[in-house]
Amino acid sequence: MKTLLKDVIRLGLILTAFTVVACVGLAFVNQVTKPIIDGLDARRTEQSLKNLFAGAESFEMVPEFPAGAGAVKFASAYLVSKGGQSIGLAVKAAGPTYGGDTVLLVGVGSDAKVAGVIVLDNKDTPGLGANAKNPNYYVDKASKTTFPGQFRGKPLSDPFEAKKDVIAITASTITSRGIAVIVKQAGDAATAYLAAHGGKQ
């Protein structure tokens, strides 16, 4: 009994020693890389927001945006303004598509229309569903409209149904339907937020 206890303590201490050294090393690496990673993230978000809203000047994170109900979740939201006046809201939303969650940045103007959609992350089948993220895949070749590009200017009162008012990606109905649902829900939430907070601006 006594030797067993001794063994447990000895092994525990050795394991602790290895873990502590590993943690100190990781803490050091994290200290070096964290500011760089955060900077990159912030720059990427800012760039995407500028692409969504032409002429946008400043972005302000909305502190208490609802997290979303059901399968679609909202990670964060940014109030976009130009010349001191709010021109819309961008919502970072994630929802299920074919190969896992797809993350979108959905811009909604104060006119209750979609200002634009950017696909930030998509893990669907390469060559099929992943075309949602491909800048050279056009659902309408004549006007060079990409799959997320077709949402630009679309009124949120539309039904947002793939193969009806949303042109689906060829052979990728699940992806198309999933993304349309995310856009719709994020758009509705953004409109509701803008309507509720519009008076303060």
């Binding site: 090393g25 990781l26 690496v29 890389t33 760089i36």
Partner: peptide, 10 residues
Amino acid sequence: TIVDLSMKAW
């Protein structure tokens, strides 16, 4: 984790 963080940063 070191590789993961470095790749994310650089």
